[in-house]
Amino acid sequence: MIVGAGANIAVQVGDDGVVVVDTGNGQLTDKVLAAIRSLSKNEIRWIINTEFDRDHAAGNEAISKVGRTVNGNPAAVVAHENASARMAQAGVADDGRPFNTYFEHARDFPFNGEPVMIYHDDGAHTDGGSMVMFRRSDVIVAGDAFLTTTYPVIDAKNGGSVAGIIRSLNRILDLAVPSKFLQEGGTYIIPGHGRIADEADVVEYRDMVVIVSERIADMVKKGMTLEQVRAARPTIDYDLRYGADSGPWTTAMFVEAIYNEMKATK
């Protein structure tokens, strides 16, 4: 895992070459490449974008151009088709966009002696997210469906939903297996942002999202307005851990996103 260049970056290395999952915010690409090169001098063959946001994908072009597929092209960028389409809408240049896209619910390929599984995180952070599992390494790169730094960021304008976040978190729980030492270690999970985690960390986060959602759903059923819901502080027990009063994703925005979703599905 490479940290500090936007979203977390995961790297798989071996005789076949290098897979890079997410490429960071593009501001520290030289350092990212240096970190990758400290792990392997082999060619960067594949890039996978778990999300289309700039903090995950702005380094695509530079890192792709340094890499090379077996056919001699720049390293292939893989993502769900929705992610590529969203990037096109946002005006991202072709060289920075994924063109090796998939439409189905999952995609896989063998690389460096292990299956690389890519699952579509449909309607989680956005409608274009992917979760990557390195099956033999036993590592899941979760994208923004799982964060250890903030409440989940629900980008409803781009197809995100709290229902999708919960679905993705449950899938991590299905895929992850703890080691024999009582629910610790085993499958490691790299969040979109934050520290390395395992199943026990994900289940705490999943519980939190479900509980907050059900509290807000109950308030919506009672006919409470958004202001009343906010005043009732349905996230109070988690705010000091995941909440924020300022910045790009505040507690108020998180509550509003769930409120709107519950209101729409009431």
Partner: peptide
């Protein structure tokens, strides 16, 4: 925050698969 968490705590949560063996 701790009071709110504890007020909503249902001990049967530890019966969930992923919680059962947590030390």
């Amino acid at each position: 925050a701790a009071r709110k968490y504890a007020d909503s705590w249902d001990p049967s949560r530890v019966s969930l698969l992923e919680h059962q063996c947590e030390p």
